[in-house]
Simulated assay, not measured.
Amino acid sequence: MNPNLLKQLAIVVKQGSLSRACEQLYITQPTLTRSIQQLEIKVGAPVLVRTRYGVQPTEIGARLAQIGERILVETEQGEEAIRQFHSGYCNEFVIGIDPLWEFATVEQTTSYFMQEKHYVFHFRTASAAPQIELLQKGELDFLLAPAHLSVKQGSLDRQLLFRDRSAIFVGKKSALIGSNNVISQDILEKQRWIAAGANAGFLDRPSEIIGLKAASMAFTGSIRSVLHLLNTSDVLVRLPARLALMTGEVSVDQIIQVAGPQGPRRDIALWTRLDNLERPESPLCQDSCRLICYYK
Rank of each mutant, 00 (worst) to 15 (best):
D204A: 05
R165W: 00
V170F: 00
I209H: 03
R158A: 12
A196P: 14
D164S: 03
Q153G: 08
R192K: 15
H148N: 14
Q191P: 08
A198C: 05
I209K: 02
G201R: 04
R165G: 00
E189P: 09
A196S: 10
S179Q: 07
K190N: 10
N199E: 12
L149K: 05
A198M: 09
Q185P: 01
A200G: 14
D157L: 14
V182W: 05
F169T: 05
S184A: 04
S174V: 15
N199C: 04
Q185C: 02
S179Y: 04
F169I: 09
G178H: 15
L203E: 12
V170E: 01
A175L: 09
F202E: 02
G178P: 14
G197L: 05
L156N: 13
K152T: 15
K152E: 10
I177M: 06
K152Y: 11
I168C: 02
A195S: 11
L188T: 05
F202C: 00
G201P: 09
G178D: 09
S184K: 04
G154Y: 09
D164M: 00
S207V: 13
R158S: 12
I209L: 03
V151P: 00
I168Y: 02
E189S: 12
A195R: 15
P206A: 02
N180E: 11
P206G: 05
R165S: 04
R205L: 00
G154A: 15
D164I: 02
Q159W: 08
P146Q: 03
S155A: 14
I183K: 02
Q185I: 10
Q191L: 06
L160Y: 06
F169S: 06
K152Q: 10
L188I: 07
H148W: 10
G154I: 13
S207M: 09
V170C: 05
K152P: 09
L176M: 07
Q159S: 15
V182D: 07
E189G: 11
